[in-house]
């Protein structure tokens, strides 16, 4: 690819228009919006995820409780809304954090080169061999059920990926003739960042972010499911699946609801990814 000179570069298509290029992506966007609305408004509508009414244990879905009640008579739709909010909020937070930390470190490494690059890259090359789930598990051992430490663990695990991608992309742009010309014209750091690096990094960032959210949601629920993440009575997708599993034949909707939210989120995030050019 020849790096387009800034004066010939076509304006990037709008983000929204770019997102709606195919029916699959449009559907993915709709699913994500619905999930986000559920996470934002749901907890306000059904605001008592921990209220137990033991007399109503395993009640079937009804109009007032669209997903019925769990084994302790807690409203499943309320728990699901709170769990979705928790997962998506944690995922968004860790993606923003890792994008900032990894992205800034990547640009700095590519920009400064020399020992800064060598040091940062050595650290990243070490961490990249450690599976993300392993890092998060170690964080879980440190966390003792604390959400904050889990968040840090997930963010650290993801920063490595951001760093590697951003560094590799930035190095190519920064070494290209366009940036060389800009430097000779004395256009300044801000210009290079905004007009040369950002247009190259933005589409990659979208892909990385969509994967990052999926990874974070999955990590949180997996940890809770195997029993080393968040603790009951927190409303969390993985915990809800664990708690509902013994009743799957009596009340299958208990298991299905969190599974569908989880699979829907991951599926929609995958569908969001930019279509690759036909090979």
């Amino acid at each position: 690819m020849s790096i387009p000179a800034p004066w010939t570069a076509a304006p990037a298509p709008g983000l929204v228009r770019g997102l709606l290029t195919s029916p699959a992506r449009a559907a993915a966007v709709v699913v994500l919006i619905v999930l986000a609305l559920f996470a934002l408004i749901g907890p306000l509508l059904w605001n008592q995820p921990a209220l137990q009414e033991l007399g109503r244990a395993l009640e079937a879905p009804s109009l007032s409780d669209p997903l019925g009640r769990d084994r302790l008579g807690r409203s499943v739709v309320a728990r699901l809304a709170h769990a979705t909010r928790l997962s998506l909020a944690l995922a968004a937070l860790s993606v923003v954090t890792s994008a900032l930390v990894g992205g800034v470190a990547g640009v700095i490494a590519a920009w400064r080169g020399r020992w800064v690059d060598t040091t940062l890259n050595a650290a990243a090359e070490t961490l990249v061999a450690v599976p993300a789930l392993l890092i998060v598990l170690l964080a879980a051992a440190l966390a003792d059920g604390s959400l904050l430490v889990l968040y840090v663990g997930i963010a650290v695990a993801q920063s490595v990926e951001w760093f590697r991608v951003v560094r590799a992309r930035s190095a190519v742009v920064l070494a290209g003739p366009a940036v060389g010309t800009a430097r000779m014209l004395d256009l300044g750091t801000w210009h290079v960042l905004r007009r040369h690096l950002w247009p190259e990094l933005a589409p990659v960032a979208l892909t990385l972010a969509s994967f990052g959210i999926g990874t974070a949601v999955l990590a949180l629920s997996t940890l809770s499911y195997v029993g080393v993440g968040l603790r009951p009575p927190t409303a969390e997708l993985g915990l809800m699946i664990t708690e509902a599993l013994p009743f799957w034949s009596q009340a299958p909707w208990l298991v299905l609801a969190p599974v569908l939210v989880l699979a829907g989120t991951l599926l929609a995030l995958l569908g969001l990814r930019r279509e690759e050019a036909p090979a």
């Binding site: 690819m1 599976p131 993300a132 789930l133 993801q158 990926e161 991608v165 190519v172 990659v204 892909t207 990385l208 994967f211 990052g212 990874t215 999955l218 990590a219 997996t222 995958l270 990814r273 930019r274 690759e276 050019a277």
Partner: peptide
Amino acid sequence: MTLSPDTGAALASPSVP
């Protein structure tokens, strides 16, 4: 769970070797 498998394919664009 890892980012790399699909991002690897998606990001390893044929643009710059």
